[in-house]
Nucleic acid binder design. Sequence first.
DNA 1: ATGATTTGACCTCG
DNA 2: CGAGGTCAAATCAT
Length: 255
Amino acid sequence: MSWSWDTKKAIEELVQGREWTNQLRDLLTKSVGDESGLELVGSEDLKPMNNMSCCDGRKSEDSGESIKSSPSASASALTLKDRRGSYKRRKCVASRTNISSALIDDGYAWRKYGQKKILNANHPRSYYRCTHKNEQGCDATKQVQKIQDDPPKYETMYSGHHTCKNTLKPFPFIMDHNDSSKLISFSNQHDLPFFSSSSKEDYKPASDITYYNGSSSSDYILSPPHLSSFHHDGISGGLDSVADIDDFLSFNGMG
DNA sequence: ATGATTTGACCTCG
DNA sequence: CGAGGTCAAATCAT
């Protein structure tokens, strides 16, 4: 085999994709029977959630007025912290969690907004929100934490729905046209799910991923990122089982 | 210049 | 009051 690096990489990604798809199918076949395996946008509005403690209503607080004057900010010149955090701490998070052996790029565009040392944890936890939060009001967030490093293991907790359109990052594969005999064509590149090597953290496809529903009271299950429209025109044999799950999951992104 | 990340302050909840 | 989640100025990257 004298495949180019890109080609090999592509194949790796595809294999990985199949892995994930199978796992997703597993998950879905278990959860779809009862209630709502995959819940679509809007349904959480109907949830009782009596306490309503969840899902941020920060910023733009009607309540009275700005600032309850923190001790320091009260008198000091309005240096900074004009009205810094006026947010509600979200509580019932972790709608879905997965554990993988490497940092996965789930295809969405995330923006890191914080990092915290966690008690009893050897590694800090990173906080990400959807890049399109401002433009489109997408409230999806995730937290990533390394939970082990001999064989490295990362835990990723997703919460919130991606309500943004165009959530996926551009497809990275650049096939060498000289190598067109092995060209893999996708009918809908725009929606392709798997993607590796973002700039910094060196995301890599993970070999073992475990999805599970993190919250006991389960406000909702986040649909595992995309996986919904993975077309596989030029491939035969490798990606079995993708077709049916594709049909099954035809809700695609924003429903 | 613009957008992403870093990082300490700030904020809420238990 | 401490732990965990978020904000935003400073810094870094493109």
